[in-house]
Design a binder for these strands. Structure first.
Lengths: 130, 130
DNA sequence: CATAAAAGTGTTATATTATAACAAGTTATA
DNA sequence: TATAACTTGTTATAATATAACACTTTTATG
């Protein structure tokens, strides 16, 4: 895991991700940070990559979007679980000890364990159901 | 779930995915199927979408790639788990009753269950370790 | 401190992945 | 046979992401 110190561009991008009410896309971030002087995609993508490595944000693979990490325990981005509402698109990080323990200790049929995983649950959130 | 009957283009695309030794990308498929008369991306993407819905193939989200479903039990693409080797990029579908039962019955902190999920484990496969 | 190595930045161009939109052909079936 | 549902072909373009290179700033350490 890398140092947690953030560079200028990383701070700028992280602020935008944090302010977003849900997962935000790279090019949306780009248009937001133009007022901060960032101009081109590589500046955003570099910052996003670093922020992921530093455990500050997560990438929601099925949405090509980025979400800030809500919990202090999240020191790494290597074990992640999310719930995704198929109606309102809301994404919530799942922090559940039983789940993380189960997945961390899961052995496949060859007896192998895995240090990293990403799990995305899809359903309809409570709000959308009601 | 849709009918399992496949259209002409779906069959052509499925054959290419099946022949591939691992996850295959849409534009790789496209170049392969040009000999079958398919010419443009939408033809491939449409077929891929349908094949996923029909449970014939899976999409590996973290790789933007497609893998044929190896197992007869796989009637749906809504509950999936894969192991991905970070060195050789090999992807294997995980069919494990304990895992699928655990995830299917998993309740989040709000007590909600989920009908669909996708899980990707990352590690180094046995072959690459040795 | 000096200075070299490492990390970060700015920039242009381009690669990769995916969909919109519309016209036309095919199939199922009432 | 009419008609609805599905499938195909096609062009254009949108959306996502990276390569490559020159330059600057920060960090480490002799």
């Amino acid at each position: 895991m890398k140092s947690q110190k953030l560079s200028k561009n990383e701070k700028v991008v992280l602020e935008v991700v944090k302010k977003s009410t849900g997962p935000i896309k790279a090019y949306t971030i780009l248009s937001d940070v133009k007022k901060n002087g960032l101009k081109a995609p590589p500046q955003v993508y570099r910052a996003l990559d670093k922020l992921i490595k530093k455990g500050k944000i997560h990438r929601i693979e099925s949405k090509n979007a980025y979400l800030d990490c809500q919990n202090s325990k999240c020191k790494t981005s290597s074990k992640t679980a999310f719930s995704i509402c198929q109606r309102c698109e809301k994404v919530t990080e799942i922090l559940n000890t039983k789940l993380s323990k189960f997945l961390s200790s899961f052995k496949d049929d060859a007896g192998e364990e895995y240090l990293e995983y990403n799990l995305e649950f899809y359903g309809i959130c409570k709000k959308c159901k009601s």
